[in-house]
Computed example of a mutant assay.
Amino acid sequence: MRGSLIALLIARREAAGLTQTELAAKLGEYQSFVARLESGQRRVDVVEFLQLAGGFDPHEAMDQLSRIQE
C-alpha cells in the first residue's frame, strides 16, 4: 500500500496544481520534507496524512487505496 499511498498523494498534489514547494509552505514545512515523503524516504503518519488531505477527502482516498489493494 505504501507505493499506492505515495502515488495518490503525488497525484492529488498535482491535481491541485501545487508544486512541492507550495505544498510545503501550506504545511509549514520545507520542500525537502515533501520530497522525502514523495520519494518514500520518510513514512507518512496518520496526522501528516490528514494534513496532506486538507485539499481532498481522506475517507475517499482510503477507499480508493483499498480498492487498489483488492
Rank of each mutant, 00 (worst) to 15 (best):
M1W: 13
M1V: 13
M1N: 10
S4L: 12
L5K: 06
I6A: 00
A7H: 05
A7I: 05
L8F: 07
L9T: 01
L9R: 00
I10V: 15
I10Y: 02
A11S: 09
A11K: 08
A11I: 08
A11P: 01
A11H: 03
R12N: 11
A15F: 09
A15C: 05
A16E: 09
G17I: 02
G17Y: 07
L18K: 01
L18C: 01
Q20P: 02
T21L: 15
E22A: 09
E22H: 01
L23T: 09
L23W: 06
A24R: 00
A25Y: 05
A25H: 04
L27R: 03
L27I: 05
G28L: 05
G28H: 03
E29A: 14
E29C: 09
E29Y: 12
E29G: 09
Y30H: 15
S32L: 12
S32M: 10
F33R: 02
V34G: 01
A35V: 08
R36L: 15
R36K: 15
E38W: 04
S39Y: 09
S39Q: 13
S39P: 07
G40V: 05
G40M: 08
G40Y: 04
G40D: 03
Q41S: 11
V44R: 00
V44I: 12
V44L: 06
V44F: 04
V47C: 08
F49Q: 00
F49T: 01
Q51R: 15
Q51S: 15
Q51K: 15
L52D: 03
G55Q: 08
F56D: 03
F56T: 07
D57K: 04
P58C: 06
E60L: 12
E60K: 12
E60R: 08
A61V: 10
M62N: 04
D63H: 13
D63L: 13
Q64G: 07
Q64L: 14
Q64F: 14
L65T: 07
S66K: 14
S66R: 15
R67F: 09
R67Y: 11
R67V: 11
I68A: 12
I68H: 10
I68P: 02
